[in-house]
Design a protein around this nucleic acid. Structure first.
Length: 495
RNA sequence: GGCCCCUUCGUCUAGCGGUUAGGACGUCGGCCUCUCACGCCGGUAACACGGGUUCGAUUCCCGUAGGGGUCACCA
């Protein structure tokens, strides 16, 4: 069997959205699995809507995800001549014909059909033109489109889709479709097939919205005498209202870039996306790159469209909860050094980076990340929620302030006293600080949780976090003592 | 409307004639505990409907309903 060759052909009319990314991912996995080649082809023949900015956005998105390709990017617009040549061949071989009907005429017929509640299909007026009639019209300089001559015999196009199974479409249901515009520019149906033939594409893995195009494209393959590739259509991703996800109507929430900008780990997004319409029999859901490539197969793609269950306005679940969960999973389980590299970028962008984290404070940095990552969901949490661990200009969480500090006015004095006790220790170890804290609480006659939780609030700004005794040791006297002594400011601010 | 496709917990899904219909996320309760999270334990929750076929249908067939896709001189 010849080499597996697949393609991802985005049209550059916007950013890369999760539906497109998912298509790219499936193609990429298939290629990696079979040792084939992934061809990236930019279908930019719609000059009206194609933009350079969009091309860059798509490439950036793919690169961020880590989806690499083997050939390209090719640009469809550069092959327009080939498309036209193919149409001429089709004309010569009798598989296509010139149609002189004007847009206005066709529009009128369409409207008439609609008014009569009938089904509109091109009525083949020009299919039966005699050679003389054609010559006459050409002599008059009338513009024409080129239409594909769909067989008029009984029967239809039959093909076996890898996902949807056997699909049949009667010839009678296919109209003589246009393959070249009156301005000489070829249309998608033709260009796409010609490009796929030239690029020797063996498997076409695309969204289910391409399913209805397939019979017509197969007709073109046959007319051009080319081998027909294997088709695999994947289900679509729908929104909460079951509408197809699109850049136009859903905005940033469906943009790959949005996930990059909101602290997602690229592989976590891929892992989430691949699960939207594909599964293994044993239901494994978390995969390493190698594992996923190993187990991926077209057979695991299901036929029903899936709903992208995003939530808007929820601070924690700002997108599909499962996506957040998978991201959090990777956040707390990935090798700490890999995580550190990602956090470093966030810190650099947020002005929190200290070169020492790569040098003498490296162990401290890694340990800190390891201690706090369990509670975080995205990379952004390290600069927001985790800010107090790395800087002094953090803000205290209001709930933590009210519940753990202001509720007990005596803390204004207790915490500085506690600071004195800690300062008296030769070193802040978990054992020693725990002993001090518990003894201190006992002296005061309060539950240990009161001073401890209050300490957490003023030291980390949060209502939750790792063990405070671990934190005292981690942060050290220079951060712990001043913050405890400064407790009074919270009472003053809130009077 | 024509043509095509689809239909299992709220969401993603397993299931390929006989299962207490399983898992994941969410959600609820509990354990752990200085808090929260993690982790662990447990609960809630689904075969769209109606006919067949069959000893037996979530599973096969046919309808109905619902949803989606597509019907351009866009890609």
């Amino acid at each position: 069997m010849s080499e597996v060759r697949v393609r991802f052909p985005p049209s550059p009319t916007g950013y890369l959205h999760i539906g497109g990314a998912r298509t790219a991912i499936y193609n990429w996995l298939f290629v990696k699995k079979h040792g084939g080649k992934l061809i990236l082809r930019i279908e930019d023949t719609d000059v009206e809507r194609s933009t350079q900015e969009s091309i860059e956005g798509i490439l950036d998105g793919l690169k961020w995800l880590g989806i690499d390709w083997d050939e390209g990017p090719y640009f469809q617009s550069e092959y327009a001549d080939e498309h036209v040549t193919a149409s001429k061949r089709l004309l010569e071989s009798g598989h296509a014909y010139k149609c002189f009907c004007t847009k206005e005429e066709l529009e009128a017929k369409r409207e008439a059909a609609a008014a009569a509640k009938g089904d509109y299909k091109y009525d083949k007026t020009c299919r039966n033109l005699s050679t003389d009639q054609i010559a006459e019209k050409e002599k008059q300089g009338l513009p024409y489109v080129i239409r594909f001559k769909v067989p008029e015999e009984a029967g239809g196009v039959i093909f076996v889709d890898k996902v949807y199974g056997s699909i049949e479409r009667a010839y009678a249901d296919i109209e003589d479709f246009v393959i070249v515009r009156s301005n000489g520019k070829p249309l998608y149906l033709l260009s796409n097939v010609v490009d796929d033939i030239r690029d020797r594409i063996t498997h076409i893995i695309r969204g289910q919205d391409g399913l209805v195009n397939t019979p017509r494209q197969i007709l073109i393959y046959k007319a051009l005498g080319a081998d027909i590739p294997v088709f695999a259509h994947m289900p679509l991703t729908l929104d909460l209202k079951k509408a197809k996800i699109s850049k136009r109507s859903h905005g940033e929430i469906v943009a790959v870039q949005y996930y990059r900008d909101n602290g997602f780990i690229p592989w976590a997004l891929i892992n989430f996306l691949v699960l939207l319409g594909w599964s293994t029999t044993d239901n494994q859901e978390i995969f390493s790159r190698d594992e996923l490539i190993e187990v991926f197969s077209l057979e695991g793609i299901n036929r029903a469209n899936s709903v992208f269950n995003y939530r808007k306005g929820d601070p924690k679940f700002f997108t599909d909860p499962k996506a957040i969960n998978i991201n959090a999973h990777y956040l707390r389980t990935m090798p700490i050094e890999e995580l550190a590299a990602m956090v470093k970028k966030e810190f650099q962008a947020g002005g929190l980076w200290d070169e020492a984290y790569d040098g003498e404070k490296s162990q401290w940095f890694l340990k800190t990340l390891d201690m706090i990552r369990d509670r975080f969901h995205t990379l952004k949490d390290f600069t927001s929620l985790g800010r107090a661990y790395f800087a002094d200009d953090f803000t205290i969480d209001e709930k933590a302030l009210k519940k753990n500090v202001l509720k007990y006015p005596e803390l204004k004095h207790w915490l500085p006293m506690f600071a004195d006790r800690l300062e008296a220790l030769p070193e802040l170890t978990p054992e020693a600080t725990e002993q001090v804290a518990r003894a201190f609480a006992e002296e005061l006659g309060v539950k240990p949780g009161i001073p401890i939780n209050a300490a957490r609030a003023v030291i980390t700004g949060l209502i939750k976090g790792p063990s405070m005794f671990e934190l005292f040791a981690l942060l050290g006297k220079e951060k712990v003592i001043p913050r405890l002594r400064d407790t009074a400011k919270f009472f003053e601010q809130n009077n």
